[in-house]
Nucleic acid binder design. Structure first.
Lengths: 338, 338
DNA sequence: AAATATAATGCAAACGTTTGCATTTAATGA
DNA sequence: TCATTAAATGCAAACGTTTGCATTATATTT
C-alpha cells in the first residue's frame, strides 16, 4: 500500500489534519513540525491520493478534450495534434491533466455527458463538429465550463469559442498576391458549405473590393473537387479569362492538383500563374515549386482554447467575445513573380 | 448538488448499500425493490460519482498515454493520431477513459511518476522515446501495467511492447520490386542510428540474400538526408551502377526528393527506375507519379497496444512476447514497371 | 500576575461509494 | 409446529483527503 497522510502523521506524532495543512499551506504551522513533516514525506515517498482529494473538494484537476479524428480529413490531424500539444502544455502547467475522448457518430454526446455528470472532469474542449444543441443545453444547465474549437454556425454558444480568422485569411491571400505583383486573382472553392470556406470567400471578396479590383467575369470558381473537375475548370479559365494570373485554393489537395495540372498545360508557376493555398500542410514545402500558404499558428490556437477554458474554470464566468487567431503568409516559391 | 446513492435510497426507503448492489449487480435483490430503485434512478437522473467509487476500489478506470508530439517529425503525427484514435476506441469500449500527457524533454518522467503514484491511472502506454531505465524500474517496482509503443533497444522491458515489423517491411519492399519486374534494388538510408532504420536495412539485406541477388557494389546508399546530398548520391549511382533499376527509401521526405531529382535528370519513374518508400504519408498518392509505399496499419497498432495493456490490467500478468504488426504494400504507379 | 489575544494543533465530520458481517424475513424440511 | 436454510436487506466501517470548530500552548498587554 502506498503511504498516506495518516502514515506520516503517525510517524511524526501529529494529527493528519496538520499534515494536510502543511501540504496545502492552508494554515500557520510551526517551522519545527513543518520540517519534520516534510522530512517524513520525503522519507516515506509520499504522494497525495488525488481521488480522495477530489472527492472532498469536488474538483478533479482534469479537463476533457474531444477529438474528431474519425470523420475529418487526415490532413487536419497534423494540425490538430499541434493544438493538442499546446492544450496539454497549458493544462500541465496549471497542474491539471487532460482526458481525451474521440468523437464518434452516435456516442459523443453520451460520452461527454458521462464525463460531466460522473465528475471526471472540471471543464471540456469540444470541436464544432461535435456539439449539439442538447449537449450545449446540458452544459449550460450545469454551469459546466466548456469552450468550442471553431466557430459554431448556430447561436447557442455565445462567446466561448476560438477559431482561426478565416475571413482575415482570405483578405491576406489577396493582399499577398497583389504585393507580389499579381493583378487578377481567382478563388477556387469546393462549395462544401463549410463555415470556414464561406469565411475565406467573404474575405477574398472584401479584399477585391477594397482594392478596387473588378474582374471581367466571376472571380470565384466553384466545385473544385477531384482532379478531373479541376482540370476542366483550369482549361476553361485559361481560355475564357486569359488575364487570370493567380489562383487561391481553399485547401491543399486542391492546390496539389492545380500545380500538377498547370505543369501539364505548360503554364509556369510562379511566372505565369501564382498559386497560394490555405493551410500549411507539411509537404507544401517539398512540392515543385514549393507552395506559398496562408497558415495559422495551431499551437497558439491550442493555447488560446486552453486558457479560455481555464479562465472560465477559475473565475466561473463566461467570456463575452469569441477569439480569432490571426493568419499569416508562409512565403514560398509559388508566388514569387518578381 | 447532483443526486447521490443516498438520495435515491431515501426516496425508495431503502439502505444505500442496497442501491449500490443493484447498480453493480453484486447481490440478490428482489425484483420489486430493484424496479423501484431503477425507476428512482431514472427519475432523479442519477449518475455515479466515479471518484468515490475509485477511492474505495482503488481503480480509476482511466489509462494514461504519453504522446511524443514535440521532437518527432511532424509527419509521424498523422500516423500517431490514428493510433490514438484506436487506443481511445478500445479504451472507451471497456468503459475506461484516456488521459494524455505530452512527452517533454525533462518532465515526462516526473509527470508519469505522478500519474502513477497519485493513483490517477490504472495503466500507461509509452512511446519508446520517452522511457528511461528509472521509469521502467519504478513501474516494475509498483507492478504497474504499462506497454511500450515501438521496440526498445535496451533490455529492461521484456515482452510488453508493440511495434511495426520493420524487418518484414524491408523484406516486403524487395519482394514487391522483384515481383514487379525490377532486378537491382538499392536502399537509401539516413543513418540516424534509429532502430527502425536498422531493422528495415536488415530485412532488405536478408531479402537480397534469400533471392540470391548479389549486387556489384554496396547496395546500401548511406547518409541520404537533404536534397543536395541525395542529388549527389543519385548522380553517383547513375554513373557507377547504371544497372540499378529501383530505389527503396526509408522515409518519405527522402522519397519526394528522389522523385524530383529523377525527374530533373530525365530518368522516368516507374519505367527506368522504380521508387518505393516506407510509411504511407497522406500526400504520397498525389505525387507525380503516385508513390508506392510500405505501410502499416497504425489503427491496428493502436488497438494492439491498448488490448495488450488491458490484458495486463485485467489479468495482472506480463506478456512474454512482443507483438509485431505486419506491413503491407500500398501499390501505386511509382513501381508499375509492367 | 492575571487577562487577553494569537498561534499551533487536534477532533471529527464530510465527500459518495463499496463491502463484510449481522440481521431480518420468507421458504423449506422433518 | 418448530428448526433449519436461503434470500433480501440493513449497519457501519473503510477508502484518503479537507476543513470548520474546539482546544491547547504561547505571547502580548495591562
Amino acid at each position: 500500500m502506498a503511504t498516506t497522510i495518516k502514515d506520516i502523521a503517525k510517524k511524526v506524532g501529529v494529527n493528519p489534519s496538520t499534515v494536510s495543512r502543511v501540504i496545502n499551506g492552508t494554515a500557520a504551522i510551526s517551522e519545527e513540525t513543518k520540517e519534520k513533516i516534510m522530512a517524513a514525506m520525503k522519507e516515506l515517498d509520499y504522494h497525495p491520493n488525488i481521488l480522495a482529494r477530489s472527492l472532498v473538494n469536488g474538483s478533479t484537476f482534469t479537463i476533457g478534450l474531444v477529438i474528431d479524428a474519425g470523420n475529418s480529413d487526415a490532413y487536419a490531424n497534423t494540425f490538430f495534434i499541434q493544438s493538442i500539444t499546446a492544450i496539454e502544455k497549458v493544462t500541465q502547467q496549471l497542474g491539471y491533466n487532460l482526458l481525451i475522448t474521440n468523437h464518434t457518430e452516435r456516442e459523443t454526446e453520451n460520452a461527454v455527458k458521462n464525463l460531466v455528470l460522473e465528475h471526471k472532469i472540471d471543464g471540456i474542449i469540444l470541436p464544432v463538429s461535435s456539439i449539439t444543441e442538447d449537449l450545449v443545453n446540458l452544459l449550460n444547465a450545469n454551469q459546466f465550463p466548456f469552450v468550442v474549437m471553431g466557430e459554431p454556425d448556430q447561436s447557442y454558444t455565445e462567446g466561448n469559442w476560438v477559431d482561426m480568422d478565416n475571413e482575415g485569411g482570405g483578405r491576406l491571400a489577396v493582399k499577398h498576391l497583389l504585393d507580389s505583383g499579381y493583378r487578377h486573382p481567382v478563388l477556387f472553392v469546393e462549395n462544401k458549405g463549410t463555415t470556414f470556406e464561406q469565411k475565406r470567400t467573404l474575405g477574398f471578396l472584401k479584399a477585391l473590393e477594397e482594392n478596387r479590383i473588378f474582374p471581367s467575369g466571376n472571380s470565384i470558381v466553384e466545385n473544385c473537387s477531384g482532379r478531373d473537375a479541376i482540370t476542366l475548370k483550369i482549361e476553361k479559365l485559361l481560355t475564357d479569362h486569359p488575364e487570370t494570373d493567380s489562383i487561391i485554393c481553399t485547401n491543399n489537395i486542391m492546390a496539389y492538383h492545380v500545380l500538377q495540372i498547370l505543369r501539364q498545360h505548360r503554364v509556369s508557376v510562379p511566372e505565369e500563374m501564382g498559386v497560394i493555398t490555405f493551410d500549411n500542410y507539411p509537404l507544401a514545402e517539398y512540392l515543385d515549386p514549393p507552395l506559398t500558404a496562408v497558415d495559422i499558428d495551431t499551437y497558439l490556437l491550442g493555447e488560446q482554447v486552453a486558457s479560455t477554458l481555464f479562465d472560465m474554470i477559475k473565475k466561473k464566468n463566461r467570456k463575452e467575445e469569441a477569439t480569432l487567431i490571426e493568419t499569416k503568409i508562409i512565403q514560398r516559391k509559388s508566388t514569387e513573380k518578381r
